[in-house]
Design a protein around this nucleic acid. Sequence first.
DNA 1: ACCTGAACACCGTTCAAGT
DNA 2: ACCTGAACACCGTTCAAGT
Lengths: 238, 238
Amino acid sequence: VSNTKATKLSRPAGRHLAAAPADAAPAPDSRLGLSRARILDAAFALLDREGLDAFSMRRLADELGVATMTIYGYFRSKDELLDAVIDAGAARIVVAEARGSWRARLRQLMLGLRDSLREHPAVVELRLERPIISPGALRLTEAGMQALRDAGFTKHDATRAFRMLFIYTFGFATFGPGRRAEADREQTITALSALPTDSYPALVESAGEAADSMADETVFELGLDCLLDGLERRLEAG
Amino acid sequence: VSNTKATKLSRPAGRHLAAAPADAAPAPDSRLGLSRARILDAAFALLDREGLDAFSMRRLADELGVATMTIYGYFRSKDELLDAVIDAGAARIVVAEARGSWRARLRQLMLGLRDSLREHPAVVELRLERPIISPGALRLTEAGMQALRDAGFTKHDATRAFRMLFIYTFGFATFGPGRRAEADREQTITALSALPTDSYPALVESAGEAADSMADETVFELGLDCLLDGLERRLEAG
DNA sequence: ACCTGAACACCGTTCAAGT
DNA sequence: ACCTGAACACCGTTCAAGT
């Protein structure tokens, strides 16, 4: 009942994976040793291994050695299953211990979130169509809100500041350098070298640097620190 | 041959929509008045109207009053068609005139990008799987690079700064308040009111503000200004 | 009760055939 | 030459039937 892939777990994947929300399908007493938890683990592994496009109920059932329709005894629909995957993914987000200044605490939280999202790209893809609020994700929000409130931000400003940091981090996980960072870098070189110098002077001049930035992981921290600079400035201005 | 939906066009949609890259399928001499441009316009309209999930080659063909396979005479595959949609979408991004300080220029550029992305959510969805470099998108990059180089950033720092702003803006378009902002706000209220006060004190205390922030459009500008603050600070520090 | 195969309404795409 | 229907290998899900 454990994940095939080694992942940072904030707590062991077990009972909370099996817990069904009130309006979800019930978990039957399986004859095949099936359970919501086991199905979710298999779904997670399949998603991490082959991505959202390759995921289907039929393939998941094959993976589990079970008829396709058997899964529908545990999850009402593909949508409900994917919602549960998100919940489980959010529960695996590492929430760092609160240490140091409000800046340091927020910085650590967002770096942890970035790392978690990088390990589960499918969760990021799924987020597109659903709001980002599940009990797991909210533990992170709680820690962030505590840091911001301790810093002196009002309730109004703290929620907006957290949301800005949260969206930035999800955005970077989505559009930042990914699995194909090196391929992206090369495609960028090709695209930029085809540009006419007279209408794209600044870009042609910096073509090498621009291509490198496509694979540059430190851009995340640059943006994060800039956001924190801005918050600090607003805090000082009152 | 014009779009059914009124959109900000940086230049009229016409010939550039029909132009095929070197490795794309050729555009035949149609008997039905079909062309790459007409197919792209229909695809754009369908995507904007019903979203990526509802989009299919069969539905697009229906829309055009044509057999499904006819489209394959103009685009080799669904993938090639969607790539062309992205190119056309990127070409529609409004690039503001360069006016005022470097800060003001970058700010305007990113607000224009945000507006363009909001009008074509499907383009954002498509971006997930492809690198963000097409001639249309690069006009924006060129304008941004000019502002940053004028400000005094090195080639290296300017590319990283632009990428950070670009990713932030795409992230906001993806994860920020969308069509269902009000629904998200309400779902958030529900989720937060179910939290136990003792383990989520900061969040429960700010539940109302947190829910409001889900639909708050001004968070985009808060983050943008924070990022620009950070850049300014780095510029002054040298 | 838990599990399953057949069937339905969809996909993208190949391929041979129409005009 | 441009266009098309049938066919293939896939989907998610319903529904009636197996054990």
